[in-house]
Design a protein around this nucleic acid. Structure first.
Length: 770
DNA sequence: CACTCATGCAGGTGG
DNA sequence: CACCTGCATGAGTGT
């Protein structure tokens, strides 16, 4: 006996012509059993809301819950946003400039994020869009730069708050159920450099929903200015998913009570503007209309000074659902901000402006930027369902820290609102199992952790011209056709807002990074989960306690009869192309509907398919008593089914979903055959391989023989989310004329091969294995 | 170029 | 000598 541990089965003694394939399964997460229920819901209902692959859904603009809010949120999100920019510094009446992308404020973002969210950022959705209002005249020290940082916190569903904070610490404005904007304290008396960091992460904002956020009536409801938001900006508990009115408020940090009345005017104008803009067909029209309405207030010079991170815009647009409509909405928002800021500046001679470089932006501001004001909008849940509408918040309330500490973690369901759940988000919650049903989280906000890095990192200092006075185009902005820039409609104001393709690249990188982080985190968590599990399962060698004694699911006989379809889940990247092999036996289903697959964004299509498969299984009698979570699958190769009695497992999935191995000898792991309920004591281990590892499942010979598995067949490993045990299923794929693919065809390329093809699935013969 | 993984094979062990 | 163990190599693939 060379088995590492005694097994329930005899040694393999004969060679089966077995075939193998290597299947690389996309990431599948194992959910905490306790949270499985909720997780499942989230998985299926929320995390894949976006059509995009995972990355895109990850919030570069977390606050923009794109369509999720509109489509699936039963409760209408009412967003009231009031924005006012009252520069406190002695800003010269620098005209507002137009949108120029700014990408050099990453540091600001980070700083702000830290400042406001502390270490709870993963719980909080923090978004910033930064618009820099460069001074009209770079040479003019009196020009003001206003930096608006709008951080959006969004807890669950529809509650949206924007908190305005001042980088200078002048008191972030915190509000409940409202969006606030605070100004930086004037950095200097000389002038006002206004740098608007406007909602980096619009994506998290429910209020940014195209239908709601830009609803003039909602945004500018009321002309309440200088309204103070409740100081106690307490994050709302997930349970408090009553509809929140979102109010965007602008706070003058310098002058809490400063209500110069400008805001009022601005508000009105903005409202009108937006109302008119909504009628427009496209961005150009929107912009043109805006220009017409504000030409007397805003000059081309003004427009030039406005800079927005292209990545921010890009992300925001995505969050808004992408496409022109989304972009239009975004443009409206930007215009709104510009207008507000501009008007504010023109009518205000404030001098105080937080020094951006000192407060939020490590990057030395251009010479012209003597001062900056950072307006931060923080979206957060407000305890009060009734938002303060349209209040122009005077005094900024530095609540962010409180917010974070106050319960961001508690109040903010990790996944809320975000279609794709940020893995981190899920983790953030102490127990996501307690999260409200997915249905309750149409407006899910991705926890900060997921995007923070990306979000802020997304803005490589692309816009070095900040303050240069040049019109900054948004290079390649996907949603803004060339010539249709924000300034495209006006002869004089021709600033073109474009999004850089680089933003896409960067976004991708960020996504990748996030994904890696996520996997890593998940792995750790998962590891903990399975450690105990493993101990229970593996401890004692071959006896597995409940595993054997309390087999889950139908008996082998039942299963034999059920003959459900076992679906081979194609790798995530395959998208919908293919599903696949149908095997005999009941397919594990989670909650009676579908096996919970890993929450991988890219798995969306597959997930759908799987759900369908689950339904099918259900119809075929599979009892939902099993809560199985798909962990990984492996198309068997010759070496897997040979007499070696070992199966090479896909590294990625193994590391992700199976217990972490400290030693190369690995661990004994009980695998219950789903079909027969027989428990196979296998060994999960790894071999050092160069600088990497090869993960193996050993003592598989008998299992393979028992199931008559051959090359091309596959095994699927699940975990029971309730008891944590592992289940394995051998799936035979038999096609007429089936012939194992060539070595080259197998493996990764094989994923697109027969095993994954619908035809294959259709032709796959159920295997009544006993 | 890095990584994964299929598998060849050398060395060890036991009958 | 047969079998097992585990390493090493290289093909295939993605970045």
């Amino acid at each position: 006996m060379r088995h590492y541990s005694s097994s329930l089965h005899g040694e393999e003694d004969d060679d089966h012509p077995l075939i193998h394939h290597q299947q690389q399964q996309e990431t599948h997460q194992i959910w905490d059993p306790e949270a499985a229920q909720a997780a499942a819901l989230l998985d299926d209902s929320i995390f894949y809301t976006g059509a995009d692959d995972f990355p895109p859904l990850l919030p570069d603009f977390p606050c923009m819950s794109s369509s999720s809010s509109s489509s699936s949120t039963p409760a209408p999100l009412k967003t009231t946003a009031t924005m006012s920019c009252s520069s406190t510094s002695s800003a010269s009446s620098s005209a507002a400039s137009w949108a120029a992308l700014r990408s050099d404020a990453d540091h600001d973002d980070d700083d702000n994020r830290r400042r406001y969210y502390n270490n709870k950022d993963h719980q909080v959705v923090n978004h910033q869009i930064e618009i820099e209002m460069a001074s009209n005249n770079n040479d003019n020290n009196n020009d003001s730069n206003c930096c608006y940082d709008y951080h959006h916190l969004n807890n669950n569903n529809n509650n949206t708050d924007l908190q305005v904070d001042t980088p200078s610490g002048g008191g972030a404005l915190s509000s409940t159920a409202s969006m606030e904007v605070a100004h930086h304290a004037p950095p200097s008396e000389q002038g006002v450099d206004c740098c608007m960091d406007v909602m980096d992460e619009l994506g998290y904002m429910d209020l940014l929903d195209t239908n709601d956020f830009f609803d003039p009536s909602s945004i500018f409801q009321g002309d309440h200015q200088n309204l103070l938001l409740p100081a106690d900006l307490q994050p709302q508990h997930p349970d408090h998913d009553e509809q929140m009115m979102t109010t965007m408020m602008m706070t003058d940090n310098d002058n809490p009570t400063n209500n110069n009345g400008i805001e009022t005017t601005t508000t009105t104008t903005a409202t009108q503007l937006l109302q008119g803009a909504e009628e427009e067909e496209d961005l150009g029209s929107v912009f043109l209309e805006w220009l017409k309405n504000n030409k007397e207030n805003v000059s081309a010079e003004d427009l030039r000074r406005v800079k927005i991170k292209k990545s921010t815009i890009d992300s925001a647009a995505r969050r808004l659902g992408g496409g022109r409509e989304a972009m239009k909405q975004l443009v409206k928002l930007v215009l709104e901000w510009v207008q507000t800021n501009h008007l504010h500046r023109r009518t205000t001679t404030t001098t105080a402006a937080a020094d951006v470089s000192a407060s939020s932006d490590p990057v030395p501001p251009p010479p012209s930027y003597t001062n900056q004001q950072v307006y931060q909008l923080v979206q957060e849940p407000g305890p009060d369902p009734n938002p303060i509408q349209g209040p122009w918040v005077g005094p900024p309330v530095p609540q962010y820290p409180d917010l974070a500490a106050g319960g961001v973690s508690v109040g903010y369901p990790p996944n809320i609102g975000y279609g794709v759940a940020d893995p981190f988000a899920r983790r953030t919650g102490p127990n996501f199992g307690n999260y409200p049903a997915a249905a309750d989280y149409n407006q899910v906000i991705e926890p900060a952790p997921s995007w923070p890095g990306s979000q802020f990192a997304m803005f490589p200092a692309a816009e070095s011209q900040l303050g240069s006075g040049q019109m900054h185009a948004f290079p390649g902005y996907p949603y803004l056709p060339a010539g249709m820039g924000l300034g495209g409609g006006d002869n004089s104001n021709t600033t073109l807002v474009r999004m850089g393709s680089s933003a896409t690249k960067e976004a991708r990188k960020k996504r990748m990074a996030r994904q890696r982080r996520f996997l890593s985190h998940h792995h750790r968590n998962h590891h903990h989960h399975h450690q105990s599990q493993h101990q229970a399962a593996a401890g004692g060698g071959q006896h597995h306690g409940g595993f054997v004694e309390h087999p889950v699911g139908p008996t082998s006989q039942q299963q034999q009869q059920q003959q459900g379809n076992l679906v081979y889940w194609p790798p995530a990247h395959q998208g919908s192309s293919g599903l696949v092999a149908v095997a005999s036996g009941p397919a594990p289903a989670a909650d009676g509907s579908a096996v919970q697959n890993a929450d991988r964004p890219g798995m969306q299509n597959q997930n759908t398919q799987r759900q369908g498969g689950g339904a099918s299984e259900k119809r075929q009698g599979w009892k939902p008593e099993k809560n199985l979570r798909f962990l990984l699958q492996k198309v068997l190769k010759q070496s897997d089914v040979g007499n070696l009695g070992r199966i090479v497992l896909p590294k990625k999935e193994a590391e992700t979903h199976l217990p972490e191995l400290e030693a190369r000898d690995g661990i004994s792991i009980a695998m219950e055959d789903i079909v027969t309920s027989r428990v196979w004591n296998m060994r999960y281990r790894f071999w050092p391989n160069n600088k990497s590892r090869m993960y193996l499942l050993e003592n598989t010979g008998d299992f393979v023989r028992a199931n008559g598995l051959q090359e091309g067949d596959f095994i699927v490993i699940y975990s029971d989310i309730k008891c944590g045990k592992y289940l394995i299923r051998g799936v035979k794929v038999r096609q007429s004329g089936f012939k194992p693919e060539s070595k080259k065809a197998t493996g990764k390329s094989q994923r697109n091969g027969h095993a994954n093809s619908p035809a294959a699935a259709a032709n796959a013969l159920p295997m009544a294995q006993s």
